[in-house]
Amino acid sequence: MITAKNIHKYYDNLHVLKGVDLHIKQGEIVSIVGASGAGKTTLLQILGTLDIPEKKENTSLELNNQNVLLMKDKALSKFRNKHLGFIFQFHQLLPEFTALENVCIPAFIAGNDKTITEKEAMKLLDYLGLSDRIHHKPNELSGGEQQRVSVARALINKPNVIFADEPSGNLDTASAENLHQLFFKLRDEFGQTFVIVTHNEVFANMADRKLVMVDGLISNK
């Protein structure tokens, strides 16, 4: 599902990623942990095609059997929209839109039919326990509800991979636990692959595999 080789990243003179190699299988839940500054979020952004690595010999990144480093911008954007989903610590819902409208946005960007998309979005929100909140705007939702809306948004295009960056970082303990259990339920029911950066050690240890980043490299495989 994901194969990355010799991934480097510099910010000015700072060498953040120093030749990361990894392989993640379809349907696997992988957590990435490490101290602040170890390169976790930078790696997640590159794996999710939101950033690009340095051009080095033997550097490659394959997602769903596609070499994304060879794609032009337009093709890459289309690939990202169709195959990848994102969940962030700060849910990044658009405040002027309802929960339903926020969930639909990636599908509308993909050019999907409005009626079919809204029906699918309502099914997802119902699945996530939000059927009575579909017409509420973000400021009318709790933190846990907002994060579940962002999960539905990440799922609307039925992506192969979900990338999550500290998804429970702003949630209380109960909401965080519910979100963590939801990821496993989604994997079991829909077969998605999850790559999750987290400081939550309990959650990290629940994953199928925990990768520890130290000074720009994965210290375990």
Rank of each mutant, 00 (worst) to 15 (best):
I2R: 08
I2L: 10
T3H: 11
T3Q: 14
T3N: 11
A4H: 14
I7F: 14
Y11K: 13
D12M: 06
L14W: 10
L14D: 15
L17N: 11
K18F: 08
G19S: 12
V20R: 13
V20W: 06
L22F: 09
H23S: 14
Q26K: 15
I29V: 15
I29N: 12
S31L: 08
I32N: 05
I32M: 12
A35V: 04
S36A: 07
L44A: 08
L44T: 12
Q45H: 15
Q45C: 08
I46P: 02
L47E: 05
L47N: 06
G48S: 12
G48M: 05
T49A: 08
L50C: 10
K55P: 10
N58Y: 06
N64D: 14
N65Y: 13
N65I: 04
Q66E: 14
N67L: 02
N67A: 07
K74N: 15
A75W: 03
A75S: 12
L76W: 00
S77M: 15
R80H: 02
R80P: 00
K82V: 00
H83V: 11
H83T: 13
H83M: 12
G85S: 01
G85V: 00
I87Y: 05
I87G: 05
F88Q: 01
Q89G: 06
H91G: 01
H91Q: 04
Q92T: 08
L94G: 02
L94R: 08
A99M: 05
A99E: 01
E101K: 15
E101C: 11
E101T: 10
N102D: 04
A107I: 03
A107Q: 06
A110I: 01
G111E: 09
D113K: 05
T117W: 01
T117H: 09
K119H: 11
E120I: 02
A121Y: 06
A121F: 00
K123L: 10
L124D: 06
L125Q: 08
I134N: 01
H135A: 07
H135M: 09
H136W: 10
H136D: 04
K137Y: 11
K137M: 07
P138S: 13
P138F: 03
P138R: 12
E140K: 09
G144D: 05
E145A: 03
R148F: 07
R148S: 02
V149W: 01
S150L: 05
I156C: 01
N157L: 02
N160H: 12
V161D: 01
I162E: 00
I162N: 03
A164F: 03
N170I: 03
D172H: 06
D172Q: 07
D172W: 07
T173N: 11
T173E: 15
S175W: 02
S175E: 13
A176C: 02
N178M: 08
F183R: 04
F184K: 13
F184Y: 09
K185N: 11
K185T: 14
L186E: 00
E189S: 14
T198V: 13
N200C: 04
E201Y: 14
V202F: 15
V202C: 11
F203S: 00
A204H: 07
N205E: 05
N205R: 13
N205C: 06
N205W: 01
N205F: 02
D208K: 11
R209W: 05
K210Y: 02
K210N: 15
L211P: 10
D215K: 09
G216W: 07
L217V: 15
I218M: 04
I218P: 06
S219C: 07
K221T: 13
K221R: 04
